[in-house]
Design a protein around this nucleic acid. Structure first.
Lengths: 341, 341
DNA sequence: ACGCATCGTCGATGCGTATCGACGCACAGC
DNA sequence: GCTGTGCGTCGATACGCATCGACGATGCGT
């Protein structure tokens, strides 16, 4: 494991170092015969190019910076699937992933760009008013946001279409003849962080309820462990009409269902229930609930496509600056069917 | 943001480039006056050293490679806390974290070392017989394992002391006058992966039960969604004696508790229950269960200490090649107290 | 006053790769 | 046969920093 250089490869293949380089980059034509000799030599030495030297000479690192926020809060509907998808996508483009925790704030961003640690950055957990966004916009490397801040400052954003999700939930309940909608709000810890999607969801739900002529109330907050109280609060709403409950905070769904069960309230019979969560959780829950999908993989895949397009605009079709992934409604057991008169 | 170089800093400070370098590394004495001038110049330009150039010239990258396995399976008691702790620790040493998914197998390892992408590697989710371990051992960079394989091949390992945990669980039940112990085994998906701790836990539990003269049975497998069946199987054991249940697979704990509740079996009254899980989960569960802690943060912190010690052995005390973190038992409500005769 | 060690700084060099200009060659057209 | 045109290859250079040897300045002892 003595670490070979392209010069070693060149010597063995009987060519010059620059030829080896051209074989790797393909930026100049190389005869098939020479090419093969070089590839053989590489194989023989198990040669790997030195990434530092590459970054220095080529001005690109083949590294993607990933800025995530670990501190709990926000829907923890899996940071992992996001990271996994991003890692796989990076790998597919022969890029590495450098992890930066958001606790560092914008200092991490400056480091990534200033030290030439990566060619592009993908930043998650964007808040509605996020200090890091203007900093990111001023960097010399392209940045893609997962989440949509109030002012994207020209950066590309990818996110689930929370407004469409809210409309979808309201429409589903309206279409099935409900009289009233209650949205279980986000816990204070999430609200405080001003995560962008919180506001977008609630506003859109209110608007759509108005359009459909349904009264809509937001109950809040539902803190962890307080789900029983929320369930109570929720049930006092039940005036004998058809009540539909929408729970956008995925962490609150299962506890709420449990709290309802304890009170012998059966979703799908006594009230209706729609959650915003990954499909898998919704299907495996007891009972399986009607949900609007939040698929991290879709979102991060799109974000990576945008990122690589920014790195090489010639490589694909133009990407929209704000790319919202359409949610999907899956009907299960928890929405009461339209009464058949 | 034109990206300044140390030469720019040197020019502004009125010194040579090498002096700037020595100010940064501290490898040669620099007068306080000069030092300050250089630091001022750096500040003024918001200079950041080019990491590629640094890696090339200095032969170290200040990057830690982190190899994780995303594919579900194994106790998913939070990959995130591990990653977070590792990221923070790296940051504290002015190192970055490069993420490699284990799906790539040992190819990822070779890439990390071959391309000089990092100075050291930390590898998680080690299996009892893990192909990657011999590869890792042959690399030119130090590697720390989180988990203990059958043959560590000379690598340093850090892990929870699962054997002590098993002994602890058995002792707790024995000390409180139980007649029989049932260990709820791991699901087949985990067993198949041959994760090292599974075997270590089960073997140690059996041994200790023998020492304490208690019959111990292992029920398996408990697949996701099959917890009710497991609960049935478990309760058939109840011959009127004092039955203690140990659940090492943290993901199975809450579903099992739920299944028991449905059958009106109250842990702490009718049977005893000990789970292996993070303290937080145990305390917030309903009911809070007696648990043996599995604290990812402790483990990964120790792993990082070992890693940085390997990078600079003069920096601290020698580290043991196999470093097991002692578990901790927290008594809550689910173990029946010793009958007072 | 003179040699000697120490401190602080500088210039030069090398790290491994990408890239630019040059050059030799075969082959086309005339 | 001679010039032009790509094609394939080479040599040289630059990238930004760490490090080594050198060297002037200073303070010490005698």
């Amino acid at each position: 494991m003595a670490a070979f250089t392209s010069k070693d490869v060149a010597r063995i293949a009987g060519v010059s170092q620059s030829t080896v380089s051209y074989v790797m980059t393909g930026k100049r034509p190389i005869s098939e015969r020479t090419r093969q000799r070089v590839l053989d030599a590489m194989e023989q030495l198990t040669y790997e190019p030195h990434s530092g030297a590459r970054a220095l000479a080529g001005r690109r690192t083949r590294v993607v910076g990933l800025v995530v926020r670990f501190g709990a809060g926000g829907d923890a509907f899996g940071l992992l699937p996001f990271i996994e998808t991003i890692a796989n996508s990076a790998r597919a483009h022969d890029h590495e992933v450098l992890l930066v925790t958001a606790d560092e704030g914008s200092a991490g961003l400056r480091r990534l760009a200033g030290r030439a640690l990566c060619d592009a950055i993908i930043m998650m957990d964007i808040e509605e008013h996020d200090d890091r966004v203007p900093v990111a916009a001023a960097l010399s490397v392209p940045v893609v946001l997962i989440g949509v801040p109030a002012d994207p400052a020209g950066l590309h954003c990818v996110d689930l279409d929370f407004e469409a999700a809210a409309r979808m939930a309201v429409d589903e309940l309206a279409d099935t003849g409900h009289d009233e909608i209650v949205v279980v709000g986000y816990p204070a810890s999430v609200m405080e962080r001003g995560l962008n999607y919180v506001g977008r969801f609630l506003r859109s739900a209110r608007r759509q309820a108005q359009v459909r002529g349904l009264p809509l109330t937001v109950i809040e907050p539902v803190e962890h462990g307080q789900e029983a109280a929320a369930a109570d609060q929720l049930l006092t709403r039940r005036t004998g009409g058809r009540l539909g409950v929408v729970v956008p905070h995925s962490d609150a769904i299962v506890p709420l269902l449990n709290a309802l069960r304890k009170q012998d309230v059966v979703p799908g019979r006594d009230i209706s229930f729609i959650g915003l969560s990954p499909d898998r959780e919704a299907g495996q829950s007891d009972p399986p609930y009607t949900n609007i999908s939040v698929e991290p993989r879709d979102v991060s895949r799109r974000a990576m496509e945008t990122l690589f397009w920014l790195l090489d605009p010639s490589s694909g079709v133009e990407r929209p600056p704000i790319d919202l992934v359409a949610p999907r409604l899956t009907r299960r057991t928890t929405v009461m069917p339209t009464p058949s008169n």
